[in-house]
Amino acid sequence: MRVAEHLNRSLHTLMENDPSVHLLGEDVSDPYGGAFKITKGLSDRFGPRVMSTPLSEGGIVGVGAGLALAGDRAIVEIMFGDFATLAFDQLVNFAAKSTTMYGRRVDVPLIVRLPTGGRRGYGPTHSQSLQKHFIGVPGLSVYEMSPFHDAGRLFTEIFDSGRPAVFFEDKVLYTKPMLSGGDGLHTFEVRDGWAVIRAERDTEHVLLAPGGLTDRALAALRDLLLEDEIACTLLVPARLHPLDVTPVADVLAAARRVHVAEDGTAGGTWGAEVARLLHERLWGRLTAPITHISAPDSIIPTAAHLEARCTVQPADIRRAINT
């Protein structure tokens, strides 16, 4: 099953099992079913609980927060993750702060889904990965879809946490299959929110990457193993922030080289925060500073040959690990 279909089925199941769940977004209703068809069939099935909205990203995130405060659970789809900037106030100043700023715990069960990333030729305002702008916001969780994680379980986990979350979904990942078991070279294991992808136990190299990089990270891992004879374990967290590395502490403890890859642009990134956290834990055991792989400090151009230069490629990951 492809990731897009898995997400769609997860939303169907979620809304079927929990009548308090409402979904809002631009063009999410049938027959259109959302720009990436993730919400297909939902409005036909769940009627007024699914609302196609005006072009008002800030407004609809606020409406979602209002529903969440009043006792419902809300999922808001923003058509392109880049447009989350239009909802920054509602997310940062209202939904996230409301969980604590009233002096007691206030639940805001709100998920803002953000189709994200380049490699589809949509150009500078429809391709960026904005994760880093949401890292370290008090009260806000940051998730990213991966082909290993069950989206329905993640949605339920977020709602049960009472904290609002941004949920990034890589747009190319939509077209890729969900993954389990292994790929012949590596085994795929999911534990406590992390996917552990490895050819053998206790590898010297460990790569951490969000779910959207999975295809490129796996391609790099295969080349490293078959051509460079380097075994590298890939760790994919579903929740990017706050990051809890406890479930993969054993994998990290065995590592001598750690690498972090992400699609965000260089400077003030998620990966830098991960490196800070891991340097504190692993300092003294590593044989080199943590390597960071990101997109360059650049907008994402439209033309394919230019876009390729400004997005992380498998060769970038392989080069960073084997040098």
């Binding site: 606020g62 409406v63 927060a65 209002g66 529903l67 969440a68 009043a70 006792g71």
Partner: peptide, 9 residues
């Protein structure tokens, strides 16, 4: 917008 969400409920 938050009030609109609450009002819808």
């Amino acid at each position: 917008p938050v009030a609109v969400g609450v009002a819808l409920r």
